[in-house]
Design a protein around this nucleic acid. Structure first.
Lengths: 136, 136
DNA sequence: AGGCCAAGGTCTCAATATGAGACCATGAAA
DNA sequence: TTTCATGGTCTCATATTGAGACCTTGGCCT
């Protein structure tokens, strides 16, 4: 479960559960850094039950700015999580849909969602306990 | 799998897989926003196989700044994922260890890690395909 | 004795990321 | 004729993060 390898003299790269803790050459950090973005995983979940258009997503996630919506969609498209289809209507409408890769990411995301629901009360308790300790 | 409820006249809160897309009153977004931070989930994974001290973590995750290390640890402690123990040595040493809550978060995180490993090649392919499309 | 190092931080300042909001072209609806 | 919706981009203000100096105490080396 924990391995240590030394690529060059004196340097050690520590790997836990397949996660190299140094940024370079670590698949997991590469993926995590992207889907860990502020809006990315939420966007995947938003598209979970069918394609959506730009403005639709905007209304769907009310607190995302148009700027970040564009950028998040581009990032996810670049990584192959979704496809962008432009329909030549007037004005053109654009549809975003999950790819198979995107769909498959739903599985681990749902595990996380489930965990969050189950443990949210505990987290809230911890938080108020911590914040309460400030006073005396 | 998809429900719509209206808390106040005209307002609609859309819920997918238990994730309300509006920020407020959504347990999942509350949790996700925190563990989705840049260093948070990585830190949990770093502590997966035993407690560690501050400087140890710093060496472990070479590209985190001391500032963010402190802050990330505080956040995780606040949410109850880890405990901070100060040993009254000279100079004092501080140990960070996962709580039960933190340990339990390892389960969904590992699912995500597994997925990342499995799908990293596909993502890299998608990325270079996308970037290649820029030229002509 | 003087200098350096490590412990676990905090403080300041620069770089980067995000948010708020104006703007754009088009065509349909009012 | 003004207005709206489409899917964006552009600019500017505000967060968030990174880089690096600084701090205190004691041990080690010379």
């Amino acid at each position: 479960m924990n391995r240590i390898a030394q690529p060059t003299e004196g340097e050690r790269v520590i790997i836990i559960d397949g996660v190299a803790m140094s940024r370079d050459n670590c698949p997991v950090r590469d993926v995590l850094d992207h889907i860990g973005g502020k809006w990315n995983s939420l966007m995947i979940l938003a598209l979970a039950n069918g394609p959506m258009r730009f403005s639709q997503l905007r209304r769907f996630i009310p607190d995302i700015s148009q700027r970040m919506l564009t950028q998040t969609l581009r990032d996810l498209q670049r990584d192959g999580y979704l496809i962008r289809t432009v329909y030549p209507t007037q004005p053109p409408s654009v549809e975003y849909a999950l790819t198979e890769l995107g769909q498959s990411l739903l599985v681990p995301l749902r595990v996380l969602v489930q965990w969050s629901q189950d443990n949210h009360p505990a987290i809230r308790r911890a938080r108020s306990a911590f914040d309460g300790k400030g006073r005396d």
